[in-house]
Amino acid sequence: MGDVLVFAEHQGGHFPKTTLVAIHAGLELAKKRGGNAIAVVAGDAPEGAAGEIAKYGVSKVIALAHPALKNYLADAHAQALAALAKKTGAEFLLATATAMGKDLFPRLAARLGAPMASEITAISDDHTFVRPTYAGNVMATVELDGPIKVLTVRGTAYDAAKPGDALAPVEKQDAEIDTASLKMEFVSFNATKNDRPQLTEARIIVSGGRGLKSGENFKTVLEPLVDEMGAAMGASRAAVDAGFVPNDLQVGQTGKVVAPELYIAVGISGAIQHLAGMKDSKVICAINKDEEAPIFAVADYGLVADLFKAVPEMAEEVKKLKHS
C-alpha cells in the first residue's frame, strides 16, 4: 500500500517536461504516504524509453509491453494499466493532464471503480487534493475515498523532476490485454508543423489574439518577435476560432495551461477563460491598444499601444539588446 504508479507518457521514447512534472508530483505523494513512486512506460517495445526515465528518482520503472500499446488508444491502455494497478496493489495512479492523460485516466478510473481528481495543483495530504474549478476562479479541496485513487496533475503545478546519478531498476512486464475486446483503431496523426519550443516547455511565450486581425499578421507581425525572443507562440481562443492559427496553440481554460517565466499577450483582451490558462506565469506583459482591457489587471507590465507599431519595434529592441 501507499505506492504511486506514475504513467510516464512518452513521444517516441522522448519524455516531455509534462511527464517529468508527473514524476515530481508522484515522488512528493509517495513521500507523504510512505510508499514508492514507480514509473510505468507503456508501448510495444518500451524498454529503451524505460531506461531513460530510470534516472529521475523513482524506485522502479515498469516497462509495460504489448503489441496493442504501439499507438496510444484509450481502451487498450486503460485495460493494461488497470490490470497492472491491481497486480501491484498501488494506491495511487498519477499522470499529467495532457491530452493523453485527460483521455485515458477517467476511463482507467471507471475500470477500477476508483474516484478521480482531475488537474490537481497541490497535495494536501494522502487523500486530499486541491484543484482549480470555474476556469481557475475557485480552488476546490477534494477528498478521495477508496483503496485506489486516480489523479491527474496540472502540467504547471510542479517543476520537472531532475535527473540524478542513481538508476532505478527496470522491470519488463507483458501487459494483460484482452485483444478481442478492443474496438478502437488508430488511423493517423497529423502533426502541426512547428520548429519553435512547445508551449508547455517554453521559458518565454508570445501569444496573439483577435487584435492581430489575420493569420497573415501572425506570420508577418508576431512571428519575428517570437523568433527574436526564442519563444513559443500561443494564441487566444478568439484567434484560433477565427482560423488565424492551429488549435494546439490555444492557451486557456479549455486549451493549454502554461506558466512560463515570461508571457507576452499581444492584442488579447483577457477573457477569464484565457486568464485561466496563463495567470500563473511568473511575469506577464501585455500590449493592447484598449487601456481598459482586462488583461492589464493581471499584467506586471502593460503597454497601451497599437500592436502593429509596437511589436516590430519590440523585435528591434530585443535584437539590439542581444547584440549589446
Binding site: 474516484p115 478521480m116 475557485v138 480552488m139 479541496t141 478521495l144 475515498d145 507590465y301 502593460g302 503597454l303
Partner: peptide, 18 residues
C-alpha cells in the same frame, strides 16, 4: 467517493504598472 470539502478564491494577482 469524491467529496468537495471546501472552496476558496485563488490568490489574487496584483496588477503591475503601465
Amino acid at each position: 467517493k469524491l467529496k468537495v470539502k471546501t472552496m476558496a478564491a485563488p490568490p489574487k494577482r496584483q496588477a503591475g504598472r503601465k
